[in-house]
């Protein structure tokens, strides 16, 4: 597809009409009319919302009837438990703290993540959501490999295998459609994934892996401990 269909991102509705139809490569050139079949909000949506809310309350009530919220010993500033763990959503960070100096793990990385998340919509990267290897294949490959390689070296220096392994897994998945050309199946699907999809998925994988390790696999002195060998 040629350049004139490139979409421009802007929220200024005066300059640019609001709704933009993206014409992807695989779609036919004719623009189909947007499917606009609508239904009344009341009751269709509202009833569904109420059902969803009730199911939520049911699930949580059952959970609350059978599992008690933890309440440990009274706080004792004289005695630090080993290991002292933050709430689970910070354990990914705490795990990072184990590898990197506090300033990196505790300040720079989380700040970068929040800033990156805030900035996502303001970079009009690949609004068309094209597959990563659609265009400029060799250049993309070189840039991607240099970036990933540099990151892996940093991770190796700090011995961060918890991040290195997911990174390599993602890299392998990312490279498969480059070498194996297939339009169908899983590989075909991978081939249509845009670059931002790869970055986000990599980030989510890292977050999940680090949080899981911090929550389940860390014992005294933050040493590796299997969940079933907790002391007591």
């Amino acid at each position: 597809m040629s350049k004139e269909y490139e979409a421009e991102g802007s929220s200024d509705a005066k300059k640019i009409p609001r709704r933009v139809e993206f014409v992807k490569d695989r779609t036919a050139a004719r623009v189909r009319q947007e499917e606009t079949e609508t239904v009344m909000t009341v009751p269709n949506l509202v009833v569904r919302e109420i059902i969803a809310f009730m199911i939520l309350v049911i699930v949580l009530s059952l959970l609350s009837l059978f599992f008690n919220a933890p309440l440990e010993w009274e706080a004792n500033p004289q005695h630090t438990p080993n290991p002292a763990k933050a709430p689970w959503y910070f354990l990914g960070l705490q795990e990072l703290l184990h590898y990197f100096p506090p300033i990196v793990a505790g300040v720079i990385l989380p700040m970068l993540v929040v800033l990156a998340l805030v900035a996502i919509p303001y970079f009009n990267v690949n609004l068309k959501q094209e597959g990563m290897w659609k265009q400029h294949r060799p250049q993309t490959l070189v840039v991607a490999l240099i970036t990933i390689g540099a990151m892996c070296i940093v991770l190796l220096i700090f011995d961060v295998y918890a991040m290195l392994v997911p990174t390599l897994v993602m890299t392998v998945l990312m490279l498969i459609p480059y070498f194996v050309h297939s339009e169908k199946g899983f590989i075909g699907w991978l081939g249509t994934r845009p670059v931002q999809w790869w970055i986000m998925t990599w980030f989510v994988l890292i977050v999940v892996v680090l949080t899981a390790i911090g929550t389940l696999f860390r014992g005294p002195e933050w040493s590796w401990t299997w969940p079933w060998e907790h002391i007591y």
């Binding site: 010993w73 910070f90 703290l97 506090p102 793990a105």
Partner: peptide, 22 residues
Amino acid sequence: LPWDQLAFWGISVGTNMARAVP
């Protein structure tokens, strides 16, 4: 708020992380 060991040390660890800001 429950003021148990979990609470006290969870918060202590968290705020210690914040102390790393230069």
